[in-house]
Computed example of a mutant assay.
Amino acid sequence: MEQYTFEEFNTCAANGDLIVARTFGTDIHPMIRTIPVEWNVTIGYGLFYPINPSEAVRLFVDAMTAVR
C-alpha cells in the first residue's frame, strides 16, 4: 500500500496544497491542519498484485474474491 511521506506533507504545506485522504491522525505535520468531512462519496478500492504472485498472495486474493 502506498503511503504519504513526510516529504509529501512538506510539499503540501509549502505550496498551500490540499490532500484529500481517508481519516488518519490529527498531528500528522506541524504545518498541516486536518478537517474531517462527511461527504456522501464512495471510493472504490482494489488489490494490486503481480501477474505471477507468490503462493501467499494468491491465497489471499482467492480468499478476498470468495467474499466479495
Score class of each variant (00 low, 15 high):
F9R: 01
L59W: 14
T34D: 05
R68T: 15
V37G: 10
F6C: 07
I32P: 01
N52C: 10
N52G: 07
T34L: 08
D17A: 11
P30A: 01
R68E: 15
F24V: 02
Y4T: 02
T5N: 00
N15P: 08
N40W: 14
H29S: 05
F9M: 02
E2H: 15
G16T: 04
L59F: 14
A13P: 00
V20G: 03
M64H: 06
P50Q: 03
M1H: 10
T34P: 05
F24E: 01
W39E: 13
I32D: 03
G16D: 01
M1I: 12
Y45I: 10
T5M: 00
T65E: 14
N52Q: 14
F24H: 06
T11W: 12
M1S: 12
V41Q: 05
G46W: 00
M64W: 08
E2P: 13
R33E: 10
W39S: 11
E55C: 04
P50M: 01
E7C: 05
C12A: 13
A21F: 09
M1Y: 08
S54T: 14
N10S: 02
G44L: 03
F60R: 07
Y4K: 02
F9G: 00
C12F: 03
Q3V: 09
R33I: 05
A14P: 02
W39L: 15
T65V: 15
T5G: 04
I43S: 00
P30H: 00
F24A: 00
L18T: 11
T34K: 11
F48K: 12
I19W: 03
E2G: 05
L18I: 12
V67E: 10
L47C: 09
T26V: 11
L47E: 07
G46R: 01
A63N: 15
P30K: 03
T34G: 10
I35N: 13
N15S: 09
E7D: 12
R58L: 15
R33S: 12
T23S: 12
A66F: 14
M31N: 04
T42Y: 09
F24T: 03
D27S: 13
G25T: 02
L18G: 09
G25Y: 01
F60Q: 06
R22M: 09
M1D: 09
G46K: 00
F24C: 01
E2W: 15
I19H: 03
I28D: 04
R33T: 06
I35P: 13
E55M: 10
T5W: 02
E2L: 15
I19P: 04
Y4Q: 02
L18Y: 09
M64P: 01
H29T: 05
E7V: 04
V57I: 11
D17E: 12
P30S: 02
A14I: 00
M64D: 00
I19C: 06
A14K: 05
V37L: 15
T11Y: 11
V20E: 01
I32T: 00
N40C: 11
R33N: 14
T65N: 15
Y4W: 08
I28A: 03
V67K: 11
M64R: 08
P50T: 01
E8P: 01
T11L: 08
N10E: 08
G46M: 04
R68F: 08
I43F: 00
A13N: 01
I35C: 12
P50F: 04
V37C: 15
V67Q: 10
E8D: 06
E8S: 07
Y49W: 09
W39A: 11
V67G: 05
